[in-house]
């Protein structure tokens, strides 16, 4: 089986290309799958998380995946962030330190994930100088995304992440991907709502909605993330099943993808030049919290 991969940008078209790859290969078993990257003239590095998750799943079905005809510029970036190390290439040094390595985690790897974030994101000298308030909120947001995947996805194949810093654009892209049941199925099982995938994502990001049931309450993670992105002037994209959802500058757009992603992608773009203090003006005191 051979698949011709187009350019993979950090947008709806990029996700559309990846779900087409998923759709064409999902039934492969004990197969040789050749991904021809002749026409992949651009690959946004954080999209490695979604790409890697799809390829990992193919490996679980005992397929052999080969990446062929990788363009030099793409090979360079995917080697720097360690993605191609998973496909028999050497990792090359990241001279400018703008990559956040591609990594797979198990759901119980929360401490390992925390170390990864601290080492690869927060304490790297190459990272942009962000205000303390922004750093704290960004760190919290990344952990909220990971926790969300752990709590809701029921993934057995892990959680994938990858990122890229763009110094000139003053943007930092970071994606977390799970191979779980997806938001639509989660909403359906817990609320009996049978929504379209993009509507299920909208539902999960609004008001007090939560799919959480049982002894531990929930329903704040995605809302906090959206609030932060709105304040920061960044962008968040969520792909789950065949739903696409994007929020930027306070505006949300949704779309229906032609095929399904086998889990959920949460991808954020942070404005690193943001100088807001993020100190909340609040009359809260420790005495009136409960």
């Amino acid at each position: 089986m051979r698949f011709l991969l187009p350019e993979i940008c950090h947008n709806q078209r990029g996700f559309e290309a990846l779900v087409c790859l998923q759709a064409q290969t999902k039934d492969c078993l004990f197969d040789d799958i050749e991904i021809d990257m002749t026409t992949t003239t651009w690959f946004d590095a954080d999209m490695c998380a979604a790409f890697g998750a799809i390829l990992y799943r193919l490996g679980e079905n005992v397929n052999t995946v080969k990446l062929k005809n990788i363009q030099p510029n793409v090979e360079k970036i995917l080697s720097k962030n360690g993605f191609l190390s998973h496909y028999a290439r050497e990792k090359i040094p990241d001279q400018w330190g703008t990559t956040i390595p591609y990594q797979r985690f198990d759901v119980k790897d929360d401490r390992y994930f925390a170390d990864y974030i601290e080492t690869e994101l927060m304490h790297r000298s190459e990272m942009p100088t962000m205000s303390q308030g922004l750093l704290k909120r960004f760190r919290e947001s990344v952990f909220e995304i990971f926790s969300n995947a752990v709590l809701h996805s029921r993934t057995e194949q892990g959680i994938f992440s990858c990122g890229q810093f763009f110094p000139k654009r003053q943007r930092l892209d970071f994606s977390v991907v799970d191979l779980g049941i997806g938001i639509r199925q989660n909403v359906k099982e817990n609320t009996n709502l049978d929504l379209a995938s993009e509507d299920a994502i909208t539902w999960a990001t609004e008001g007090r909605n939560t799919t959480k049931r049982g002894k531990i309450p929930g329903g704040l993670g995605l809302k906090l993330l959206c609030e932060f992105i709105d304040l920061n002037g960044g962008r968040i994209q969520i792909v789950s099943d065949d739903g696409y959802w994007q929020r930027e500058k306070g505006k949300t757009i949704t779309a229906h993808l032609s095929q399904s992603f086998p889990g959920t992608v949460v991808s954020v773009e942070i404005n690193t030049s943001d100088t807001q203090s993020y100190v909340l003006s609040s009359e809260l005191t420790e005495a009136n919290i409960f």
Partner: peptide
């Protein structure tokens, strides 16, 4: 240093 809603919920 860092708290999430997931931690505080539990």
């Amino acid at each position: 240093a860092t708290l999430t809603s997931a931690f505080l919920n539990a």
